[in-house]
Design a protein around this nucleic acid. Structure first.
Length: 399
RNA sequence: UCCUCAGUAGCUCAAUUGGCAGAGCAUCCGGCUGUUAACCGGAGGGUUGUAGGUUCGAGUCCUACCUGAGGAGCCA
C-alpha cells in the first residue's frame, strides 16, 4: 500500500492506495510519485482514526500529471536565505498557505469595513510628479524625460477626493527607498488610507480603533483554522475591541523617562521605546499630539499648544509597534502655505493641494495603515517578509 | 552608511590546540509496509564564498572583497 498526502488549495488529505484496489499500472505510477508531484485522484472519503485529521481517501483511480524531481524544500529545517530564494515554492508550504489566506481575509475586512460605512473607494496614482517630503525616500523613474516618483502615500490625492465624496479610502501599493533593514520594513508595501471630511483628531482615533477591532474579530471568526495551523495564541487577539487606551506624546515620554530611556524629549521614539510602549498593554495604544517639528508639514497644530500637532500613531500590542499613523490636516490656506515654505517644498508643485483650501475648505482627517505590519501582528510573525507573497526588501528582489 | 555574527555535499549542520573533510535528510538502487519528518541495507555526491598571505601543514590564523542574517541609524 502507498500513502499520498494530497492537497488542492483548500486543504490537505491523506490518500491511501491499496495494491489490490487499483490497476497494477496505477499502483506502479503511484509508486513513482515524489514530493510535489501533481496528480488527479478519485476515491471514497471515509473516517479513519489512523489518518491525520481523522479522514482519508480510499483511492480507486489515480492519474499522474507530472512527476516532480528534486523539490528543494523538504520537510526538514531550512534557513531563511534559502527559503527566500525559493519563495515561489515556499508559498506551497502549509504555514505560508495559511498566512496568505489570513492576509486575504484582512484585505477583505478592510474593504468591507469602509464599503459598509459609507466610504467611497477612490484610487490614487502610483506615479507622482513631485516629492512631498524630499526625494531621498522615493524611487525615481524616468517619465518621458521628466522625473517621476513611485508613490509613498495616496494621502494628498485622498484629501482632494474626500472633498468630493466626503468619506474616501484608497488601498494600494506604496514604495519607499529607505535603506531600512529591520523586521518591520519593506521597500514595497500595501497601505489603506481613509480620509474623512469634517472629521477631527478624535473622530479618526475612534475610526481607527473601530477599524482595527473589526479586522481582528473578522480574522478570528473566518480564519480560525489557519490561526490554529500557524499556532497563533488567539487569547490576546480576543481582547482587541474598542476603546483603545490613548496617551499623549508628552505623557508617553514621561513614562519612558521613568523607565530610563536615553532618547531626548522632543525627538521621535526609538525602536526600544516603541517596544516598551507596545508591550505595556494588551490592546493597541494610541499615542497622540507629537511635537510638530518631527512630523509632516500638513498636520494641524494643536490649538492648546502650537508646538504639537494633532496627529496620532497606533502601536500594536505584543511588541509589534506602529501600524497606523494619521492626523488632522491643515485646512487653512495661509497656514498651509506657510508650512510648505518652512519645509522648503516647491510651492508650485503644491498649487493643486493649496486649491483644496481655497475653495470651500473644511477640517478633515485621515490615517494610513500598513497591511503587512497588521498581518505580521495578527499572525505573530517575527518578520514582515512572510506577510506578502513576494517581498521587496533591501538587497533582495528575487524571485 | 555603521556595528555584530555567519558562509563546509542539493538542504540542515559537525570537524578537539593548525594535523586523514564527516553525519542526518534529500537523490539513486534493493528490501519492508497503516505510514504520520517511517524503518533496514547499499551507492553516488566537495575548488570548505572569492583572491591573497602566514605555516612543514589552513575548513580552522591574518588581510581585502563578495554574499547572507541580526541590530542601529533612517523611516508618508
Amino acid at each position: 500500500m502507498r500513502f499520498l498526502l494530497v492537497r488542492d488549495g483548500t486543504g490537505t488529505i491523506q490518500a491511501v492506495v491499496f495494491k489490490g484496489n487499483v490497476a497494477p499500472e496505477v499502483f506502479e505510477a503511484v509508486d513513482q510519485a515524489t514530493q510535489e508531484s501533481s496528480l488527479t485522484v478519485t476515491g471514497t472519503v471515509k473516517e479513519d482514526s489512523r489518518a491525520p485529521g481523522g479522514y482519508e481517501m480510499d483511492v480507486s483511480h489515480c492519474e499522474i500529471e507530472q512527476i516532480a524531481g528534486d523539490y528543494p524544500i523538504t520537510p526538514k529545517d531550512h534557513g531563511t536565505a534559502f527559503l527566500m530564494e525559493n519563495r515561489h515554492l515556499w508559498l506551497r508550504s502549509s504555514r505560508q498557505h495559511a498566512i496568505l489566506r489570513i492576509r486575504h481575509e484582512i484585505i477583505r475586512a478592510v474593504r468591507d469595513f469602509y464599503d459598509d460605512n459609507g466610504f467611497t473607494l477612490v484610487d490614487t496614482p502610483i506615479l507622482t510628479p513631485a516629492a512631498c517630503e524630499g526625494t531621498t525616500t522615493l524611487f525615481e523613474i524616468d517619465y518621458f524625460g521628466e522625473k517621476a516618483y513611485l508613490s509613498q502615500s495616496g494621502q494628498l490625492y485622498n484629501e482632494a477626493a474626500c472633498m468630493s465624496v466626503g468619506k474616501t479610502y484608497c488601498f494600494g501599493p506604496t514604495f519607499r527607498a529607505e535603506k531600512s533593514k529591520t523586521r518591520r520594513h519593506l521597500m514595497e508595501f500595501w497601505m489603506v488610507e481613509p480620509e474623512v471630511a469634517w472629521a477631527d483628531l478624535d473622530d479618526i482615533m475612534k475610526l481607527a480603533e473601530d477599524f482595527v477591532s473589526y479586522i481582528v474579530q473578522r480574522v478570528l471568526e473566518e480564519r480560525k483554522e489557519e490561526l490554529e495551523r500557524i499556532e497563533r495564541d488567539t487569547a490576546p487577539l480576543e481582547k482587541i475591541e474598542p476603546p483603545f487606551p490613548r496617551i499623549s506624546y508628552s505623557d508617553a515620554f514621561s513614562l519612558l523617562e521613568a523607565k530610563g530611556t536615553e532618547t531626548p524629549r522632543g525627538s521621535d521614539f526609538g525602536g526600544a521605546d516603541e517596544t516598551i510602549l507596545s508591550c505595556s498593554l494588551d490592546k493597541p495604544l494610541i499615542v497622540h499630539r507629537y511635537p510638530k517639528d518631527i512630523k509632516a508639514f500638513y498636520m494641524q497644530p494643536d490649538p492648546e499648544d502650537s508646538g504639537f500637532a494633532l496627529c496620532m500613531d497606533m502601536l500594536a500590542p505584543e511588541g509589534y509597534g506602529e501600524i497606523i499613523g494619521g492626523s488632522q490636516r491643515i485646512h487653512d490656506a495661509d497656514l498651509l502655505l506657510e508650512r510648505i515654505r518652512e519645509h522648503k517644498l516647491p510651492v508650485k508643485a503644491f498649487k493643486w493641494y493649496l486649491d483644496l483650501r481655497k475653495y470651500g475648505t473644511v477640517p478633515h482627517s485621515g490615517f494610513g495603515m500598513g497591511i503587512e505590519r497588521v498581518v505580521s501582528w495578527i499572525c505573530a510573525l517575527d518578520h514582515v517578509r512572510e506577510t506578502i507573497p513576494f517581498p521587496r526588501m533591501l538587497y533582495r528582489m528575487y524571485p
